[in-house]
Design a protein around this nucleic acid. Structure first.
Length: 739
DNA sequence: ATTAGTGGTGTTTTT
DNA sequence: CACCACTAAT
């Protein structure tokens, strides 16, 4: 039997996890402990031993990358077609379910998915149409409010109002949902909430899926939010087994509603007594693990777990303090060169940072050094404006009620439709409660603009007609061409890249077509044995287009062209989760940056930042660099930062200092928030205030300067007060005295 | 109707 | 610095 094969080489805990009986269990899997291997091997084992058919299990991950990885590994071990399997992200699977049962879910067949940008645009539009003061109700806050409540499983009606302000927010939430319904669009959180409500409401479907998915497997369980947990619980029912794999120490998505609370709750509700810890690390050398363990030990709320390795202690960690961010970057470049000299491949080296903005300096240095690099993050393929424009045309072809898409391209390229006529259309649409498209069809504006609108409508209608009988890539090409987008960018001097991206979109469509990622919805619906009523003249071609559009929203595509086979990898710590490299540089280890200053006011914010740091450290196999700079350009201003407290939480014996000696080294190494006194190079000599200095404020009392910004009369300092916490003060007015 | 320019503002991480 | 919203000029 092949099964002995796949189990070979597993350690006792891994083996135990893989071959658990049909019961819910929690696998606490530390970084580098073979988490993905255990998960995929269990799937293969379950199938091979005939305990479940590929059809009868559901495996859910958090990222598309992880889902792909899982599918790849499964098909490497098992000669089966993974296409029909329910393996994917929460959002992907919910989308799939909603497509299969769109009527029961009360959605139009061609419902479109809003990404974060689209959602914000819709909210702004809504606020404007309701004459809401954007000062008092910032669109971003409302977006946060809505997503937060949806992710907790609450509709507007279920949200409690505390005051007038929150009452208004709740109203806006309700109106937002109405607007989404009118337009036939759903945001990310809505995918989950709809799916959850569908299963709650519809007993037949619920029972069907419960009977079908006897095994549910969850990856990165620590990243699930409340709603996802409820969804899993609903699907599992009383009889199914949930196999949850996670690491509370790597929970870094609390800002998105994730809560490692779910792990505690899961243990209580499902996995009582069935918790398996995977603590042997197969990735990193001992010193790196010791550093990570020591760091994470500073967190209070943990399930508790200690990684060990038998790989030997390896090299010490290397630390460097640079005068400026530019110097930090050139130090890193120099080290990359020597690593390369030792035979490390560029693609095995990663440069990690807390926020995307930090990549600029590094990129600059790498570019000048002629080193190949690849940046993850920033703008993704499907988020580029030219791509968004093309997709908007396609969306209108698929679903004309999509106001967001309408507004995006109704006057691009220019058709003489200005703000005025658009407002007219919006008025008509609002009064009659219809979409902009409908308003435009029945009540086109008068005059020149009216001609433009009519031309636009004819264009879209014509495109829809002509898409019949075309393949997906042909449709995309037709739309790009006939919409005038191509001409528009051709006449633009810097439009070359955009044209190339548009061509690339045609390729993406061709690839999607070839992989047959579509029309699963029909299969799924058929599999349930609940045939959808025949949609009026539903064109299978348009169904294909529709799934392509969903794909574009759910999987925004690689961050950058995937060429760099031999290139350094630059990315945020968040996007590095799940990856590993021979050598890792963690740069910008400064208070305010990492931990990020915004996290300091948030409950458990610093603990989350520490987990993030833990993730960063545990990416490294054999060499780990930790660096920070005394001054850094940020938002066009020079900031003076002190070393991150996290550096002080790593035992000194594990670290080799590479920085040139200074008057004062790292201080406060033992316990507590480290207070570092540094002599900041380049501090304006006019100012007596220095980072790290103890100060006294008449109202706030004693504190420490955390950063200094600007000079002269604009000079401001960030002070961490013992009582009052973090405050930003203008030096001109604040009555600060040195302590 | 469209464009260029200005001023104010914020700014983490991502499915 | 970069993005936005708004204003002034074409």
């Amino acid at each position: 039997m092949i099964s002995s094969n796949i189990l070979a080489g597993l350690n006792p805990q891994q083996l135990q996890a893989v071959t658990l009986p049909h019961q819910s269990a929690l696998i606490l899997a530390g970084a580098g402990s073979g988490k993905t291997r255990v998960l995929t091997t269990r799937i293969v084992w379950l199938i091979q031993t005939g305990q479940v058919s590929p059809h009868g299990l559901l495996a859910v991950t958090f990222t598309n990358k992880a889902a792909r990885e899982m599918l790849t590994r499964i098909s490497a071990m098992l000669p089966i077609n993974t296409r029909g399997m329910w393996v994917g992200t929460f959002h992907g699977l919910c989308n799939r379910m909603l497509r299969a049962h769109y009527r029961d879910a009360r959605l139009p067949q061609t419902f479109q998915i809003l990404d974060t940008q689209d959602q914000l645009a819709l909210i702004k539009r809504l606020l404007k149409s309701l004459n809401v003061d954007e000062e008092r109700y910032p669109p971003r806050d409302l977006q946060y409010f809505i997503s937060g409540h949806k992710e907790a499983g609450r509709r507007a009606a279920a949200v409690e109002a505390y005051d007038e302000h929150s009452k208004r927010l709740i109203e806006l939430y309700a109106q937002y949902d109405q607007q989404c319904n009118r337009e036939g669009v759903v945001d990310f959180a809505e995918l989950l909430l709809r799916s959850f409500e569908l299963l709650t409401r519809n007993e037949i479907l619920r029972e069907h899926y419960r009977r079908r998915f006897s095994h549910i497997l969850v990856d990165e369980f620590q990243d699930t939010n409340r709603l996802q947990y409820l969804w899993l619980k609903l699907l599992a029912g009383p009889d199914n087994a949930i196999f949850a794999v996670g690491d509370d120490d790597q929970s870094i998505y609390a800002f998105r509603g994730a809560s490692s609370q779910n792990m505690f709750e899961f243990e209580r509700e499902f996995a009582q007594g069935r918790v398996i810890k995977l603590e042997q690390n197969y990735r990193s050398h001992g010193n790196i693990l010791d550093a990570a363990n020591a760091l994470i030990d500073h967190n209070q709320r943990r399930l508790g777990k200690d990684l060990w390795t038998d790989a030997g202690e390896g090299e010490p960690l290397r630390a460097y303090e640079a005068p400026t961010d530019v110097d930090e970057a050139s130090f890193i470049v120099q080290e990359v060169r020597s690593l390369r000299g030792e035979g490390t491949r560029l693609s095995d080296i990663a440069m990690l940072y807390r926020s995307n903005a930090q990549s600029r300096v590094l990129e600059h240095a790498l570019f000048n050094a002629g080193l190949a690099y690849r940046v993850y993050g920033g703008l993704r393929f499907f988020e580029r404006q030219e791509i968004k424009h093309a997709l908007a045309y396609l969306r209108l072809v698929a679903s004309p009620y999509d106001d967001g898409a309408f507004l995006r391209v109704v006057n691009l390229p220019a058709r003489g439709i200005g703000t005025r006529s658009i407002e007219q259309l919006q008025d008509v649409a609002r009064q009659r409660g219809v979409s902009l498209w409908q308003a435009a069809c029945s009540n086109p504006p008068t005059g020149k603009a009216g001609q433009g609108v009519t031309a636009f409508i004819q264009l879209i209608d014509g495109l829809r007609q002509d898409c019949f009988g075309l393949s997906l890539p042909e449709m995309v090409e037709l739309v790009i061409d006939r919409s005038g987008l191509k001409r528009y960018y051709e006449s633009d001097r810097d439009g070359q890249d955009r044209i190339e991206n548009l061509n690339e979109l045609v390729n993406a469509a061709a690839g999607f077509d070839a992989e047959g990622g579509a029309s699963i919805a029909e299969e799924d619906a058929a599999a349930v044995g609940l045939p959808q009523e025949a949609a009026p003249a539903a064109d299978p071609r348009l169904a294909l287009l529709n799934s392509f559009l969903a794909h574009a929203a759910l999987e925004a595509g690689e961050h950058q062209a995937a060429d760099g086979a031999q290139a350094l990898q630059l990315m945020t710590v968040h996007s590095a989760k799940g990856l590993e490299f021979d050598a890792v540089f963690v740069s910008g280890l400064e208070e305010g940056l990492f931990p990020h200053e915004n996290s300091l006011n948030q409950a458990d914010g610093v603990e989350e930042e520490r987990r993030l740091m833990y993730v960063a450290l545990t990416r490294a196999r054999r060499r780990l660099y930790l660096s920070h700079a005394q001054t850094r350009m940020l938002h066009g201003q020079t900031r003076y930062n002190i070393a991150s407290r996290f550096l002080g939480e790593i035992p000194e014996r594990l670290v080799r200092q590479l920085s040139p000696p200074r008057v004062q080294g790292w201080a406060g190494r033992s316990g507590g928030p480290a207070v570092h006194t540094i002599t900041a190079f380049g501090t304006p000599s006019s100012s007596p205030w220095r980072v790290g200095q103890d100060v006294l404020h008449p109202k706030f009392g004693p504190g420490v300067i955390v950063s200094v910004q600007g000079r002269g009369s604009d000079a401001r300092v960030m002070v961490n007060f013992r009582q009052a916490g973090m405050k930003e003060l203008a030096l001109e007015y604040a009555k600060l005295t040195a302590a």
